[in-house]
Amino acid sequence: MRRHAVAYGLLSAGALLTVFPFVWMVVTAFKPDSEAGAMTLDLWPSAWQWENVTRTFQVAPFALYFYNTFAVAITVTLSVVATSLLAGYAFANLRFAAKNVLFLLVLATMMIPFEVALIPNFLIIRGLGWYNTYAALIIPWCANAFSIFLVRQAFLGLPKDYFDAARIDGCGHLRFLLRVAVPLVKPTLVTVALFAFLGSYNALMWPIIVTSDKDMRVVQYGLTVFWGEGGVRVNLLMCASAIVILPTVAIYFAAQRYFLESSLSAGIKG
């Protein structure tokens, strides 16, 4: 312990800086209206206004937003895991023509900023008649190059002997993939799932573009309601931010056991 006093000091200072915005957010969320916007160094509210939470929920139908967001994010997460598992395996373990070219094309899609793809993708969604539907929120995000890349790297990281041994036992690709390989790359899959969930949960621009119906709104949109002409009630805005952030933090806590052993590092090699 004492040996690392400097390290602990530095780490604590950094950690304080890192969490300060969160602490400030949570504390401000429970301040009375009169204190929230004031220029003061006092961090602590004079009285904790727990009812700010109910007030926040009254401003916007967050329950509905949460339902939409979770329905979309969970579907996207499962689909991303499925598509990247299959494609990653194919790129890692199968022999077929133009493999490298196809893989490069996949990586190339990472180079396009999402904002640029907005209009063409919107046109496609409109063409498919998916405007204002869950399909529009879900399908375009069901595969991404980064996840395919990570899974492929994880498969490449597996010792070749596993596969050869399975082959000798008469195990085909599909059975090997789903019964032998999946448990071995579980940490990577959890990582992919976490990123997919975060990406979907935190999206704002796309949901606003492809939906207009108020029943289709997602939680990130809920934050924008607080910026209306009626003025920004800082405490409620912070309360809403905290409510929106909470689920991702919880999910991160749940997933982090895998995330740490995460073979992101293994995936990076090669």
Binding site: L118, I119, F122, L123, I125, R126, Y131, I208, I209, S212
Partner: peptide, 9 residues
């Protein structure tokens, strides 16, 4: 939003 929607007709 209207601009994008005009594009999408």
């Amino acid at each position: 939003k209207v601009s994008v929607s005009i594009q999408a007709r």
